[in-house]
């Protein structure tokens, strides 16, 4: 009996030791993360090729990211007729300060991303037509390429036609195409990171 009692106490002691150890609470807060999943601000910047100071900008803003606030698409795109522009993007998560440049990530993972465009028929003299969202092989003047030579679309060139366009349409669409992007993949392959419609005016 003596041995038993001894053992019993021994184990009880052991248990209470484990007990005390695990009751040592921590009150750690999750570490701050650079949120790279959320895109809040997308800015389209058309720069006149003849005059670097002549810039036309359009913006879309989702003020609270995943929250319930509505998307705000502001600023119609008003371009000059018969003018050549370079289109670049600013893609940001501005929930954090300073903001997180998601455009930089898209560029780094260019082999998985492509931006597609659609616009009012023949609004531009180059590229002509209505863009490559409906048909991936339609012409867009991509000026950047990924590691295997396929276009990304963060830099494109546009020459407006000589006819005026009012209340036209300009759609940009970033597709994420991991493992599937090829020269032939189109705007319905993979998943959509953004899909935005702007008003296009050409005077």
């Amino acid at each position: 009996m003596k041995l038993q009692t001894k053992q019993f106490y021994l184990y009880t002691l052991l248990f209470s030791m484990i007990f005390l150890y695990s009751c040592d609470e921590d009150d750690a807060v999750p570490a701050e993360e650079n949120e790279v999943e959320v895109i809040t601000d997308i800015k389209l910047i058309f720069t006149n090729k003849a005059d670097a100071n002549d810039k036309v900008e359009a913006k879309a803003k989702d003020p609270d990211g995943e929250g319930t606030k509505e998307l705000e698409v502001s600023d119609a795109i008003s371009l000059k007729a018969a003018t050549s522009y370079t289109l670049t993007f600013e893609i940001m998560n501005n929930l954090e300060t300073p903001g997180e440049d998601i455009g930089e990530e898209v560029k780094e993972e260019g082999a998985e991303h492509q931006i597609f465009f659609s616009f009012t028929d023949d609004a531009f003299s180059d590229p002509a037509g209505n863009g490559n969202i409906d048909n991936a092989s339609d012409k867009i003047n991509y000026k950047d390429t990924d590691a295997v030579g396929n276009p990304i679309g963060l830099i494109t060139e546009w020459t407006t036609g000589s006819n005026a366009v009012s209340n036209g349409e300009f759609v940009v669409r970033l597709q994420h195409q991991p493992d599937i992007k090829t020269a032939g993949t189109g705007a319905t392959d993979g998943d959509t990171d953004f899909n935005l419609k702007f008003v296009l005016n050409i005077q």
Binding site: E25, P30, A31, N34
Partner: peptide, 15 residues
């Protein structure tokens, strides 16, 4: 009963 849940850093997204 005692339970302790912790997020590990490095996910690149809000927990």
């Amino acid at each position: 009963f005692n339970q302790d849940n912790d997020n590990n850093p490095g996910t690149g997204t809000t927990p």
